[in-house]
Computed example of a mutant assay.
Amino acid sequence: MKHLIYAAGIAGAALLPATAAKPQDASWGCQVLLCAASQNPSWHGVEYCIPPMIKLIAAMSKPGFSWPVCNEANAGAPGHEDYADCPDGAKIGYSQYGRDGNRSAPDRCVKTVNTCQTHPGLKGPAHQAGVILNRRARDGEDSCIKEISSQRPRRADPWYFDIPNDHGVKQRHWFNLNL
Rank of each mutant, 00 (worst) to 15 (best):
128 Q>P: 02
150 S>W: 06
9 G>Y: 06
76 G>E: 12
90 A>M: 07
91 K>D: 00
142 D>H: 03
33 L>P: 03
63 P>D: 11
172 R>S: 14
126 A>G: 07
51 P>E: 15
125 P>W: 02
74 N>A: 14
113 V>W: 12
170 K>N: 10
96 Q>K: 15
25 D>T: 00
146 K>I: 11
179 L>C: 06
62 K>G: 03
77 A>Y: 03
95 S>G: 08
123 K>N: 15
149 S>W: 04
146 K>D: 07
17 P>N: 11
14 A>N: 13
115 T>G: 10
48 Y>T: 08
133 L>A: 14
162 D>A: 11
74 N>Q: 13
143 S>D: 06
150 S>R: 15
138 R>D: 00
119 H>I: 13
156 A>I: 07
176 N>M: 05
33 L>S: 09
104 S>R: 00
97 Y>H: 01
93 G>L: 01
118 T>L: 09
137 A>E: 13
118 T>N: 15
1 M>Y: 10
23 P>T: 12
25 D>Y: 04
160 Y>G: 03
92 I>M: 06
153 P>M: 08
54 I>T: 08
56 L>I: 12
175 F>N: 06
165 N>Q: 04
110 V>I: 07
122 L>Q: 07
75 A>S: 08
18 A>S: 11
126 A>K: 14
52 P>K: 15
100 D>T: 00
4 L>N: 07
50 I>H: 09
64 G>D: 10
73 A>C: 10
134 N>Q: 14
15 L>C: 02
16 L>N: 12
126 A>Y: 07
168 G>H: 00
20 A>W: 03
89 G>F: 07
136 R>C: 04
20 A>M: 06
58 A>F: 02
84 A>Y: 05
77 A>E: 13
64 G>V: 09
116 C>Q: 00
123 K>W: 12
32 V>W: 03
97 Y>R: 02
19 T>K: 06
175 F>H: 07
34 L>T: 15
74 N>S: 05
27 S>C: 10
93 G>A: 02
125 P>D: 08
129 A>M: 09
5 I>W: 08
48 Y>H: 04
177 L>S: 01
18 A>I: 09
3 H>G: 13
132 I>K: 10
66 S>F: 01
45 G>N: 02
84 A>E: 12
144 C>S: 02
77 A>M: 08
16 L>V: 13
169 V>W: 14
47 E>Q: 15
75 A>K: 11
16 L>F: 09
73 A>N: 13
132 I>S: 09
65 F>C: 13
64 G>S: 04
64 G>P: 04
18 A>H: 15
154 R>H: 03
